[in-house]
Design a protein around this nucleic acid. Structure first.
Length: 508
RNA sequence: GGGCCGUUAGCUCAGUAGGUAGAGCACUGCCCUUUUAAGGCAGGUGUCCCGAGUUCGAAUCUCGGACGGCUCACCA
């Protein structure tokens, strides 16, 4: 606590320095602002009525020539460039739909307005009215009759040609990234489309969307460490959800037959190119179905999204061509280990597997590790990186699948699958375990296996009780939306598909 | 959390025998009535991420720290 004082002083000094530096930087723009106010021009207007947005203008005047339109149009946006020529000026105006060139002439708008126009800066948001025509070089252009300053900008825009490249700045000041880097905006538009089309796809199949709690009294439904928070009036600790699974299953007990939820999960784990502490998950459950049904849903959904959004089933991700055409290969984990790594795991003793894993230095083998965990480790180390084309890996070991039903054919594995693309798990599904006695036993085993006891693991007996009333057989599926968006937008990092990824505060 | 790499003007980037910092864009002034990375002339606006050390002298070398990137681990 005592060490807070010097930090605060330091911060004050820093702020003082910061404000001096900034003052210097925006001096000329502030002078322009002052000039506008002296001319009785409000630089922060309340509204502006546009006739069309820029992309509609482009469509409407597609066939316009050098003779200007008889109609005038009113558009608004941010000034991105200015090219002054003495008594005339060209510039580019950008709105949410596109960019268009505008042309200002002193002899049209008059002496006084031209003087005011010259006080505008790149970055200012203006409304303009005028006729549309094409210049000699064929560029569609709005010839300005009237303009309105709508918002004065005080800080300089990033460089017009190179844009904003510094990754840290792009994440910290995403609004600038979005203004200046067109492909970034496209990525986030695609993200929105994907989520919208997932809803369309599932709604069409008769699924209903629900919202379950984000604040959980007991963290459950996955293995990750949770974020802990506290409710003051109830004086109780709560956990930001790591998965919605146990609540969605309660709804199966309740009689909902097809439900899904698209929302944030929070996991207090490491940050990486594939992991953000908060990420978006789709989970869906279908009563009276098993894992083969949800596998089919997964495949159909991705193909549907590709058809709708990308208009192709052959996509390129990080230099790899990926063929999404169905049917995707289905192969059990054990067979995949045999096929992709030439390891006959079924005929190996545990010690032999441990020896094999020791080749990969980083893998940690805890005491009392189960055979199922060992098999999963071998799969992760030797097979996952090779799964570039879409494939369903099925039949996961029972020890690592506490919420999945035991296989009808092999008691050591469960009816569980994960779809892999580009070596990455993009989903997880199973025939849901609905036997309350078995479920309780499996939870107990999980707690025994849990060695990093940072968070005390507690069995959700309320969930067990719900199962005791009877949950119909069901197939369930979880899909990491961010990873799907990465794939569809050829984004290398999860941070490129999350608008405001978590960063440490910048204390410099 | 570990390893490797990075951080120089608002932005994009140069900058080595260690001698106190530069270009383009942006910005300021002047010229310019069809430009589009407009052009011409003039102007450099900086805590070289921070702190300590070595040195006569550090953007540059050493150590510590901050933030970021990649990667490994945890995890999805």
């Amino acid at each position: 606590m005592e060490k807070n004082m010097p930090e605060i002083n330091n911060e004050l000094n820093q702020n003082k320095h910061e404000s001096e530096r900034e003052e210097n930087l925006i001096k000329s723009k502030k002078e322009n602002l002052k000039f506008l106010r002296e001319q009785n021009i409000e630089p922060y207007k309340y509204s502006f009525q546009r006739t069309l947005n820029i992309s509609s203008i482009r469509k409407k005047y597609e066939n316009i020539g050098e003779i200007e339109s008889s109609e005038t149009e009113k558009i608004a946006g941010r000034i991105m460039t200015l090219r002054g020529h003495g008594k005339t000026c060209f510039g580019n105006l950008k709105d949410g739909t596109g960019v268009i060139q505008f042309y200002v002439r002193k002899d049209i708008i008059g002496e006084r307005d031209y003087q005011i126009f010259n006080k505008l800066d790149i970055g200012d948001i203006i409304g303009i009215e005028g006729n549309i025509f094409r210049t000699r070089t064929g560029e569609m252009t709005l010839k300005v009759i009237k303009f309105d300053i709508l918002t004065k900008s005080l800080l300089p825009m990033p460089e017009k040609f190179h844009g904003l490249k510094d990754k840290e700045l792009r994440y910290r000041k995403r609004y600038l990234d979005l203004i200046v880097n067109e492909d970034v905006k496209k990525t986030f538009e695609t993200r929105t489309k994907i989520i919208k089309e997932i809803r369309n796809f599932l709604d069409e199949l008769g699924f209903i969307e629900v919202e379950t709690p984000m604040l959980h009294p007991i963290p459950g439904g996955a293995k990750a460490r949770p974020f802990i928070t506290h409710h003051n009036v109830l004086d109780m600790d709560l956990y930001l959800r790591i998965a919605p699974e146990l609540y969605l299953k309660r709804l199966l007990v309740a009689g909902f037959e097809k439900v899904y939820e698209i929302n944030r999960n929070f996991r207090n784990e490491g940050i990486s190119i594939k992991h953000n502490p908060e990420f978006t998950m789709l989970e869906l459950y279908a009563a009276y179905e098993d894992y083969t049904y949800v596998m089919q849903i997964m495949e159909n959904m991705v193909v549907y999204l590709a058809d709708k959004i990308l208009k192709t089933r052959i996509i390129e991700y990080q230099g790899e061509k990926i063929d999404l055409n169905p049917p995707w290969k289905r192969i059990s984990m054990k067979d995949a280990i045999k096929e992709y790594a030439a390891i006959d795991i079924e005929n190996m003793k545990d010690d032999e597997i441990i020896e094999l894993l020791a080749q990969k230095e980083e893998i940690e083998i805890r005491k009392g590790i189960t055979r199922g965990e060992l098999i999963a480790h071998v799969f992760e180390a030797f097979v996952e990186p090779k799964l570039i084309q879409p494939v369903f890996i099925t039949d996961f070991p029972v020890e690592i699948s506490p919420l999945a039903k035991i296989s009808r054919l092999d008691p050591t594995v469960t009816e569980r699958f994960e779809p892999f693309i580009y070596g990455r798990e993009i989903g997880n599904g199973f025939s849901e375990l609905n036997d309350p006695i078995d479920q309780e036993q499996r939870f107990k085993k999980q707690i025994e296996m849990d060695t990093n006891g940072e968070v005390s693991r507690v069995i959700d007996y309320d969930f067990i009780e719900a199962l005791k009333y009877g949950m119909p057989p069901a197939g369930g599926l979880g899909v990491g939306i961010d990873r799907l968006v990465m794939l569809f937008t050829n984004s290398a990092s999860i941070r490129d598909v999350i608008l405001f990824p978590l960063l440490r505060p910048d204390n410099r």
